[in-house]
Amino acid sequence: MQFKLIINGKTLKGEITLEAVDAAEAEKKFKQYANDNGIDGEWTYDDATKTFTVTE
């Protein structure tokens, strides 16, 4: 399945997509990506659109 991450950071904004088996795997990958890029914020997930959002 394809999942999307919307980044609303203080210095980094944008979207990325990835393939994952389920939402838990996608969340783990997205949070690792955010951590690697210094993004720390409030996370939400919309199951209907398979979209994660992180807002700093």
Rank of each mutant, 00 (worst) to 15 (best):
E15V: 06
Q32E: 05
D22V: 05
E56I: 09
K4M: 09
F3A: 01
G41T: 01
E25P: 01
T17A: 13
K13R: 12
G41S: 01
E56C: 04
N37D: 03
G14C: 04
A34H: 01
N37R: 12
Y33P: 00
Q2K: 12
F3C: 02
D22G: 07
N35I: 13
A26E: 00
T51K: 04
T55D: 14
N35D: 12
D40W: 13
K29D: 05
A24E: 14
L12Y: 13
V54T: 02
F52R: 00
Q2C: 05
K10V: 11
Y45V: 02
Y45S: 02
E25F: 10
N37I: 11
N8K: 10
V54Y: 02
A26F: 00
E25T: 14
G38L: 13
Y45N: 01
A34E: 01
I16N: 03
A23Y: 14
Y45F: 07
K4A: 13
N37F: 05
E42P: 04
N35M: 11
N37Q: 11
K29V: 08
Q2T: 12
I6Q: 11
E27V: 11
K50H: 11
A26Y: 00
A23W: 13
L18V: 15
I6K: 11
I16A: 07
K4T: 04
A20E: 13
E19M: 12
F30W: 02
L18A: 11
I7D: 01
D47Y: 13
T49Y: 11
Q2L: 06
K4R: 06
A26D: 00
I39K: 01
E25N: 09
K10M: 06
A20C: 04
A23T: 15
K31D: 02
T49A: 12
I39M: 09
L5P: 00
D46A: 07
Q2S: 13
E27N: 07
K4W: 13
A23E: 10
Y33S: 02
M1C: 04
N8H: 09
D46Q: 13
N35T: 09
E15A: 13
T51W: 03
G9P: 08
E56H: 12
K10N: 12
G38Y: 10
V21D: 14
E25M: 08
E56K: 08
E27I: 10
V54M: 06
T17G: 07
T11M: 08
N37T: 11
K29E: 04
E56F: 12
L5F: 06
K29T: 10
E15R: 09
G14F: 10
G41K: 01
E27S: 12
T53L: 13
D36P: 02
K13C: 04
F30A: 04
G14Y: 10
L12C: 03
D46H: 09
G38C: 05
E56N: 08
Y45E: 01
E25R: 03
T11H: 05
Q32W: 04
A26W: 00
T53E: 11
T51D: 02
D46V: 13
A26R: 00
K13W: 12
E27H: 13
K31P: 00
K4H: 06
K31M: 08
F3H: 02
E25Y: 09
G9I: 10
V21H: 07
T49S: 12
L18Y: 11
E19V: 12
E27L: 15
N35R: 08
E25L: 05
D22Q: 06
T44A: 13
D47Q: 07
E42H: 13
I16Y: 15
